[in-house]
Amino acid sequence: MDNISLNVSQLVKNIGSQQKIGELDFVIGKGAKVALLGLNGAGKSSLIRLLVGENQPTSGAIEYLTSTHTFSPTHKEFKSSLGYQADTMLSINQMCVSEYLAFCAAFKNLAHSTLPDEILDLMELWGVLEAAGTDMSKLSKGNLQKLAIAQAFLGEPKWLFFDEPCQSLDPIEQDRFNSYLKRLTNIELCVFSTHNVQHALDVADEIILIHQAKIVYQFRTKQSKDYLLCIAELNASLDHQILNKGINFEPIGYGIYRLHQPKHETIKLVDELLEQSELVNVIFLPEREALMPLFRLLASGEIELEKSEIFTARVDKEE
């Protein structure tokens, strides 16, 4: 547990009859940068809102762990070192950029003597120094987004959460954000949601793929040699051909399997078997490369989680 900074167990969020988040279980290591990937409406923002305590879960628990304490998202200690950029920020009337940052600092109860310098540095870092005296209502959408990101870094927070930080940013600013995040150290955790798979792979230590309120796949990006097998179709003969060949597949669920650091021969064998099966909706690629095809499969609706679960259960039973 020493290396864990976030422990989520049996997390459920229902709004009315609609399930926003469904029974999530995962842990994140200390100092990790986590990218949440998923299609629109997958549940990324809902998960972030639950993680920061903006929404209360219907059931389940979220625990933040440090070397000495365990916090819930509403804990004061957690709040005092939280940096959060929500995806819905609009301007405040009669408030300029520098005032806004000072306003946010006041809400964060920051009153150290170097605060004016910190605000100045942040404005410079996020490219809004030129607009320091500009009224927020006159800022472009991109500059407003940069301001939203800047305020999240006020007070050198340890727990960082960004909800689609790169939306409205131009490519240069997106790169600036990603490279800053890459360089970021001395944090407990950084979670951000994005639609840009490449950015996620570049920046994040860990990627969580969310679909229909559930985690479909989670993997560590660094030094990943694992392979992902996704069989979207139900095919009984395939079970015998692939899964009963003595290959050590780890069933993830939803028709997805992980093959741990497969040897070259194993990869070749699986490729051949898949070729013979003449399946169309199937992926067998290294994890990092499998993300985009998997996205396409999810977007096409070929993977239906409920059916996949039945399939997974059947495989487990046969094993």
């Binding site: 920061v52 305590g53 903006e54 004061k76 709040k79 005092s80 939280l82 959060y84 929500a86 819905t88 920020m89 609009l90 301007s91 405040i92 306003f103 946010c104 809400f107 964060k108 109860n109």
Partner: peptide, 18 residues
């Protein structure tokens, strides 16, 4: 209500102030 409608609700929500 104004902070909510301007999407600044999180400032209030995540304030470490009691």
């Amino acid at each position: 209500p104004y902070l909510s409608v301007r999407g600044q609700h999180s400032l209030l929500l995540h304030s470490p102030l009691s």
